[in-house]
């Protein structure tokens, strides 16, 4: 009861926020932060187990483009096309990840194979420019009459804020579900020693595939949501290596092993980009990535657990030190 109280209060405050304060620009920034937080959380669900995928830009692109294409070309409601996008994303994930896991391609080998995936999704989008608009981008057609639940299009930012908040919260809940599940035990074990995990009875390929498909589908949902909210997508903003690396970067900065790490990462990176944009205007094009790049290198060298992870560890350390003492005397 007591443990839930702060969460409930924080949740209520977040839900109440747009009804009290609804200036369009801050609300827009918050929606963007929530959507990306969800995408980064999706990545970290598998990334935290050493399954470092650089293919998530591809999954995000699939989510965004499948949804938009089915709407424009087939008039299919996002309520139907988003599940199809998730299914497509899951299929691609299985196609690429299964041989990797079956033949034990792990670590940086896995990162490289998945890197090819995000590169190729970008190429496909560009190559099919007759249908997707290529690198110029793509706009889902506006539904007549503005906001529509059927078209999942809303003019007002408050609705989007609540949708994004709900999806983001679902992402955090999934994170905790994984954290508390036996799957976490299996994946922690696998990340250390696949043979020993198999000897304990763990079906290594299956467990890895499950978490990969989960993560890929969540990421595709983030892509679809981004598309519906922004009403404009381009290969560079929802797919490709840059987006994949951006996910890794934000998660590493925020903290890969903690539930809110990816969210913190999203807040920091997006606010940084906005501050640079507002203070320097168009002169600052490229400056945000410049700072990201340097920060990513610095974080990996000096603070690999991320800001939130590092803070939590620093807080836990005095306790751990006292807890370790009696054990030492026993030995």
């Amino acid at each position: 009861m007591k443990r839930w109280l702060p969460w409930t209060i924080a949740g209520a405050l977040l839900v109440a926020l747009p009804f009290v304060y609804n200036a369009p620009y801050p609300l827009h920034i918050m929606v963007v932060i929530l959507i990306w937080s969800f995408a980064y959380t999706s990545w970290s669900i598998m990334g935290r187990f050493g399954l470092v995928s650089l293919g998530h830009g591809g999954f995000m692109g699939i989510g965004a483009y499948v949804t938009a294409l089915l709407w424009n070309h087939a008039g299919m409601s996002p309520w139907l096309s988003i599940p199809m996008a998730l299914l497509a994303s899951a299929t691609i994930a299985i196609l690429v990840a299964y041989p990797c896991f079956r033949f034990r391609i792990t670590g940086h080998y896995f990162a490289l194979v998945t890197l090819a995936l995000s590169g190729i999704v970008l190429q496909v989008i560009t190559a099919t420019r007759d249908h997707t608009g290529g690198s110029l981008g793509y706009t889902p057609e506006r539904h007549q009459g503005g906001s529509s639940i059927y078209a999942l299009q809303f003019i007002d930012k408050e609705t989007w804020y609540l949708i994004a908040l709900g999806v983001w919260a679902a992402g955090i809940v999934i994170w905790y579900r994984v954290e508390r599940s036996m799957m976490r035990y299996a994946l922690e074990a696998i990340s250390e020693d696949e043979d020993a995990a198999a000897a304990a009875g763990v079906h290594v390929t299956w467990e890895k595939l499950k978490v990969t498909v989960l993560s890929a589908m969540m990421t595709a949902l983030a892509g679809a949501l981004y598309c519906q909210y922004q009403m404009f997508i381009s290969p560079d903003t929802v797919s490709g290596i840059s987006i994949s690396l951006q996910m890794v970067f934000a998660v590493v900065v925020g903290g890969i092993y903690v539930s809110l790490g990816p969210t913190i990462g999203a807040i920091i990176t997006i606010l940084l980009a906005e501050v640079l944009r507002i203070s320097f205007g168009t002169a600052a094009v490229g400056y945000d990535n410049l700072v990201y790049g340097v920060l990513l290198v610095l974080f990996i060298i000096f603070l690999p657990k991320g800001i939130l992870g590092g803070l939590m560890e620093a807080r836990a350390r005095p306790q751990a030190a006292t807890a370790a003492q009696p054990k030492a005397s026993r030995a």
Binding site: M182, Y185, A186, E188, A189, S191, E192, D193, A196, A197, A200, G201, V202, H203
Partner: peptide, 17 residues
């Protein structure tokens, strides 16, 4: 599995084994 506690190591084996 050093990232799991001693008990969790054995629970893992008990669950999947």
């Amino acid at each position: 599995f050093r990232r799991l506690s001693i008990l969790d190591n054995v629970i893992l084996a008990g669950f999947y084994g």
